[in-house]
Structures are given as C-alpha cells and as structure tokens.
Design a binder for these strands. Structure first.
Lengths: 191, 191
DNA sequence: GGCAGACGATAACATTTGTTATCAAATGAA
DNA sequence: TTCATTTGATAACAAATGTTATCGTCTGCC
C-alpha cells in the first residue's frame, strides 16, 4: 500500500518506517459507518481497496456530497481540521480495505514534514487543488443543467458512474432519483 | 488601509514597510474590468472601498461566481496560482479604491513569511477556510431550493443582497433573473 | 430455494423554474 | 433637461424537475 508513494517522500528509511508504522489496516463490509454525524473526526482513512461516500441527512433525505476511491484519503475534513462535531457521515459503499491513522499522529508527521520545503509546497498544492475542485463543482451548478452535469460526470469521473449506486449519484448531482433515471433513459434513446 | 492589519503581522518595521511599499493604489469607476477572460492573472487586488464580482461567459450568458467587498483580496485564483489563462472576468461593481500588488512581489513576500510558523499557519488556515466556504456553497445546491438559498444569503451575506444588482445575484444562486424576482415577491407577500 | 430488502425504471400528475415579452422606474451621460 | 441604458417586476406560456406510486430485477441471507 505505501511503497507506491515511497519515492514521493524524500525521507530517511527510519522516518519513513516510523510514519507508516502509525497506520492501522482494517477490512470492513459494505455500508459500514466510519464516522457518525455529530462525532468529532479523529481518524484519517486511506483507501487500499473499495469506495466510500460522505453524506448528510437533510429533512430525512440522504444526500451524498463526496465519493472516494483507491489511494485517496478520507475524513470529514472540517471536523478533522477544526475539531468540530462532524456535519456528515462517512460510510463505505463497497467492502473495503482501509488504513487509518490517528489525528494526533498525523499532526506530528505534518509538523515535521512542513520543515521540508518540497513536501510543504506539495501539501499547499493539494490544498489549492481541493479548493479548485470544489469551485469547479460549484460552477457546474450555475452553468449546467442536471443532464449536462451527469454527462460531465461520465466523462470526468467514470468510476463514480460505474461503481456507485445510482440513487447516491442523484443527490450528488442535485436531482431526484427519478429524474436521474429519466436523464439516463433520454441519453440512451437519443443515441 | 494597511494599519488595521499591522498587529496581525509579527514583522519588523523595515519588513512591514518594504511589503506595503509593493502595493499600488488606484481608483476605478464602476464596471471597470480588472482582468479579462483568457488573460493570465498577474495582480492581486485588495479592496479599500467598493465591490467586485468574478464572472464568466457561458453560451452568451453572464454568470457571476463570486462577490468581494472591503478588506478582501481578489484575483482569478486559479489563473493567479497556476499561471493559466483566466476562465473568468474580474470586474468592479461600484466605483472602487483598490490596492494591487504584482504576483512576483507577492510570491517573494509569501516565500519569506512562510518561514514564520505563525504566519505560515495562518496562511494554511485561510486556504482551508476558502475550501470550507466552497463546500458550504456546494452543499446548499444539493440541499436547498433556490428560495432557501436566497433566504440564507440574506441572513449570512446581507451585503451582497444590499449592494449587488439583483441580476448578478440570480446567476450566483443558479436561477434566472425572472425567478429570483418571483422569489423576492413571494417572500414579501407571505409575510 | 425462497424471501426480504435494495435498487432502478416508468407513469401520472403537481410544482418549480425557464423563456420571452412588455412595462415602469431609476440611473447616467450628453 | 432629455434620451438611452440599466435594472427589475410581472404575465403567459413552455419546459424541466419533483413526488408518489407501482412494478420488476437483483442480491444477500437463512
């Protein structure tokens, strides 16, 4: 799991082994809740295999805001960073193999690697990239119809369309399950 | 303009004066374009007085994605950071007093203050905050109706509703100008 | 193998939202 | 002032989207 990242981190063998020693491997079934709404997020998860969604309850409706797949890290980011009660649930979609790390251990690591300019800059890049991704997603809500948003999803994040149950995708796109079904059917019959 | 921030920056008088010396004051009319679509953003603007919107053209429609007011800094952030051609226009809404700084000078400053842990952490906090703001905005598109989104805007960002022409607000909320007008009228007559 | 629950398609109908057009008020420039 | 432009309200109609209900398929589990 970690060897693929080894060459990206200019660290001594000792440090490298210390850091990966903080991670714990778990295997969980589909639909396992990793973080409850209201809980304070203290673990960051790395996905070796499987997929995860972040969702919240709004007036009894299950609304999905994010999907994560292999090699991505997942947490309720606001809760994890600011130690607020999480506004969202974190839940597996497929049976998954995960590696988690305690926030306090991660904080130690980050504090140490911040001194390495190369890693510090990469960290900041990641932060910007995350912001850009959200901006782009927001732009799609003011410029595209739901059908166009679904089309973009197929093109830009095909793994979501392929692996995630459709009713989760519907709320992610901001439409009802019925309407997403209509969009799909229209796409099929037009071509 | 800068004195109000003085106590937030643990810098020597010399450094402080050097840094603020990089800024240039300008006064511009309403509807002045500060950055064209396709241009590479090389200036960051600080607003002393006035307000600014960021917008883009989509199939002939003028779509506004952000508003900025006094004491906020503005740029086409992706273009500014990554040196890409800007996907957006930056334009004043009101007659404004602005202070701008060259990207290269700002980069120098940032490179220097990164060494100060206190400022470095504040910089990272700002980045996270920006991401959280976009997340929140995105959440509102999957959980709220346009009417609820307008209501939240009144409560959370009243200066937008008070100072920005309504047709700019419409696209920001993802609705047509006609529909925003309907939402307002309904809010009035219900209460 | 059979059963319950999850998932998705579809229909019918209600509601929301967009589009186009028109008008009125406010604003700014000559 | 006067005139053109910008801004916003409203009506009428069209299109998109939500809601509720029903049905069929699939899947996991006993």
């Amino acid at each position: 799991m970690f060897n693929q990242f080894r060459n990206k981190f200019p660290l001594s063998e000792e440090k490298w082994n210390e850091y990966i020693g903080y991670f714990n491997r778990i295997e969980v079934a589909a639909k396992t809740t990793l973080l409850e709404e209201g809980e304070i997020s203290k673990k960051l998860y790395l996905i070796e295999k499987g997929c995860i969604r972040v969702w919240f309850n709004h007036n009894g409706k299950d609304l999905t805001s994010q999907f994560f797949f292999e090699n991505q890290s997942v947490a309720s980011i606001e809760s994890f960073i600011k130690k607020f009660p999480s506004p969202v649930f974190v839940e597996t979609i497929e049976p998954s193999i995960l590696w988690w790390i305690h926030k306090k251990d991660l904080d130690t690591i980050i504090e140490e690697i911040k001194e390495i300019p190369e890693l510090r800059d990469r960290l900041i890049d990641k932060l910007f990239q995350r912001t850009f991704d959200y901006m782009k997603h927001f732009f799609s809500f003011i410029k595209d119809s739901p059908a166009q948003r679904y089309q973009s999803l197929i093109e830009e994040k095909p793994e979501i369309v392929q692996r995630v149950p459709q009713h989760y995708i519907a709320s992610y796109l901001g439409v009802s399950t019925v309407h997403l079904s209509r969009i799909k059917s229209k796409l099929l019959h037009e071509k």
